[in-house]
Design a protein around this nucleic acid. Structure first.
Lengths: 222, 222
DNA sequence: AATCATAATTAGATAGGACTAAATTTATCT
DNA sequence: AGATAAATTTAGTCCTATCTAATTATGATT
């Protein structure tokens, strides 16, 4: 709740949140890569976050970090800002889903709680962002996510695309051109065990997607 | 044009611009006060700005600073951001003119050129912000300002309010309650040479305004 | 258990931007 | 002109967040 968190700290917390969603600890190296920073810098920062008052992370040497409750709240606040902003850039300023990330990345640290409330209210408190990810609610609770990665599924299933996670602009544009956006229903037609390609059909378009792609698409099995 | 200018540098340039509009040099103390920073810090920063490549200010010890052409461009870019944001917070998010300053102050450093273009286009490239100040154009030219301070005028003149400059939230709300917003026409009825109060009438409301107030109101004589 | 690669940590340096305290200029006033 | 006040600058310190280089753990392998 401390609005005195620096931009760097906010970024660390956000990425620790993402890396620990699955229940694992966030490793120094993984964090360093996401933050585009050297591992040594991560170690130092993480030590600070662990010994600050209140502590924002729990840290055991060589064991990586997890968020404390305080840290989790702060992380969700940043993520809420980010996803509300992405949604709002698309809805109000005509950005496409592949254009929003960088701008949201900088704005998330600059908006006030008032601004947050206003855009959220203006959009009717949306629950998902343009990529289909859940937006933490105003009280910082996060719905549980029961989507599964398309890469884990096999033929003869009908699924609904819920979200696309970790895709760059180019891939996002490509997916959009195939009609693969959140909400789209699709069928899995074929699976190739050699290269893990999946053939899918959405509407009248079909496509063969490699594991680099299917691992980033999250769906609900119908 | 260097998008590598830090937030601090952008703030320095913005305030130097404001302080040197009239042709004078910006003094160390005046800058320190505006930036809420100690004079010693200003001296050091100003030395850096003067010796950077390209130089952003011209600086002579004990003589204050002025902007170089590079510095002026950078300052106008920041001011354009600020004023576009204020305008857009009012028009699109329902802020009132007394609520926009702080949010715009932080956002001005966080928006992309793309974002700038989009909100500007969305609003039809406005030329004035909610306080009536000119918004520098996309090519960073600034219209010349021929408004005069209300405090310099005397009775029996009809004027149009163009802008309110340097007023805090409380004063802005007060002025709005008197109908004294940009565009309003008013008559000067009386002048008190002792306390420099002016009695003015706008529509059916009239008010007696002290020099603290009239000095912040800029008008065009009709 | 000894070895080796990988991951992580420590130590020390750097850069930006602020501060305080002390020294110096400039301006002002008899 | 001399004295003092005000403004400015210098010198040195601190804090945040990064880096490189060197060191130490951990874990996998033989």
């Amino acid at each position: 709740m401390d609005q005195t968190l620096t931009v760097s700290v906010q970024d660390y917390l956000k990425h620790i949140y993402e890396l620990t969603k699955n229940g694992e600890n966030a490793s120094t190296n993984a964090l360093a890569e996401r933050l585009a920073v050297r591992p040594a810098s991560v170690t130092v920062m993480v030590q600070k976050l662990a010994t600050s008052d209140p502590a924002l992370v729990e840290y055991q040497k060589h064991q990586g970090v997890t968020l404390t409750e305080e840290g989790r709240k702060a992380a969700l606040e940043v993520i809420r800002h980010h996803r509300l902003l992405e949604t709002w850039l698309v809805r109000s300023l005509g950005y496409s889903w592949d254009e929003v990330h960088e701008d949201a990345e900088r704005l998330e640290h600059a908006i006030s709680e008032d601004f947050e409330r206003r855009i959220a209210a203006d959009m009717g408190n949306p629950s998902r962002d343009p990529h289909g990810e859940f937006i933490p609610s105003a009280d910082l609770s996060m719905p549980l996510d029961d989507s599964v990665s398309l890469s884990t599924l096999r033929p003869n299933q009908t699924v609904k695309l819920l979200s696309v996670r970790g895709a760059g602009s180019k891939l996002l544009r490509h997916l959009e051109s195939l009609g693969l956006v959140p909400g789209t229903q699709m069928e899995i037609l074929e699976y190739s065990p050699f290269d893990h390609n999946l053939t899918i059909k959405a509407g009248r378009k079909s496509a063969i997607l490699g594991p680099e792609v299917t691992s980033k698409i999250f769906v609900q099995v119908l």
